[in-house]
């Protein structure tokens, strides 16, 4: 595992933060960490990179306990509220951070990264003259300086325009293809949906759902059917296999947790001698899932 947390808790005087988080991230994954504002996402990342001390529990990065210098050797981090020394030029800033990583002869790597984040030609400008988007781009370059095994990106596109967002998405995909692990904190669900393999959803400091994105979304496939010549027994059987079941004059509407149930239900309809005129399926978007889960959590 590249990242592992066991009952990790960080609270501020018994409030805020996150509680008893247990999760693991495999090598080469793009892991999305989702949650509404104030859910504890950034606190979790800051704890992982050693900026906050956990209240209880354990966590490891590349099998090194968090908080140790060794645990940060192969880590890249883009903070949410990115701010850099504005008296330096872009190139000086990258050199400074390369020196902090003890990288020898970082010139070539700096040039590559400037190219990657589309800041070539701006490297000799002072950071204070950079736009917010440019500062976020140079932050991404800093996070990749040490060729990290795991990169924590906390809202990496918050200051970027749509083109910049696509570029960051491409960088994430590129990192994944290189076998790197990306831990993505974001509340831009469409973005997460496009790049993440696994997600965890956090609300009020607790993980309320976690798993492969595909699996989580599969759990919430919406099905609509139009049938005739049905029996009451058939309708009852379908209702037992599904959730949120609704039936009115031959129209069935329900959700299934497993997509494999859809052909099974169709087979049941045919075998029961009923006529199947229409079968539509619609997989929930991450947004639907997110709102559904957060809503349920708030209710409970």
């Amino acid at each position: 595992m590249v990242l592992e947390a066991q009952n990790l808790t960080k609270q501020f005087n018994g409030k805020g933060g996150f509680k008893e988080v247990t999760l693991s991230v495999e090598k080469g994954q793009v892991f999305g960490f989702l949650g509404p504002n104030g859910a504890g996402k950034s606190t979790f990342v800051k704890t992982m990179v050693g900026l906050l001390h956990p209240t209880s529990g354990f966590a490891w990065i590349l099998e090194k306990p968090i908080g140790t210098v060794e645990s940060r050797e192969k880590v890249g981090f883009l903070p949410e509220n990115f701010r850099y020394h504005d008296w330096m030029t872009g190139k000086e800033l990258l050199s400074f951070h390369a020196e902090l990583y003890k990288i020898k002869n970082p010139g070539k790597k700096i040039d590559e990264l400037l190219e990657l984040v589309k800041l070539k030609g701006h490297e000799n400008k002072l950071i204070k003259n950079y736009s917010k988007g440019m500062q976020q781009r140079i932050g991404i370059a800093i996070a990749l300086l040490n060729d990290p095994e795991i990169v924590f990106l906390d809202e990496p596109t918050s200051a970027l325009d749509p083109v910049g967002r696509i570029e960051v998405r491409e960088i994430i995909k590129q990192l994944k293809s290189q076998g790197k692990t990306v831990f993505l904190n974001s509340h831009l669900l469409s973005e997460v949906e496009m790049v993440c393999d696994e997600v965890a959803i956090i609300n009020h400091g607790r993980i309320i759902a976690e798993g492969k994105l595909e699996e989580l979304l599969k759990e919430h496939t919406h099905v609509e059917m139009i049938v005739s010549d049905y029996t009451t027994e058939l309708i009852e059987k379908i209702s037992h296999l599904s959730k949120e079941f609704q039936f009115k004059e031959g129209k069935l509407s329900f959700k299934v947790e497993d997509k494999e149930k859809i052909p099974l239900i169709a087979k049941m309809v045919i075998e029961a001698g009923a006529k199947l005129y229409q079968l539509n399926t619609q997989t929930s978007s991450l947004e639907d899932l997110f709102i559904n889960l957060i809503g349920k959590d708030e209710m409970s």
Binding site: K46, V49, G50, L51, V69, E70, R72, E73, V75, F77, P79, N81, F82, R83, Y84, H85, H97, L100, Y101, K102, G139, I142
Partner: peptide, 14 residues
């Protein structure tokens, strides 16, 4: 206060 510390202390330094 400015937040520049985050990118420094997330590096492998004590």
């Amino acid at each position: 206060e400015s937040g520049t510390i985050y990118s420094i202390l997330s590096k492998p330094i004590k």
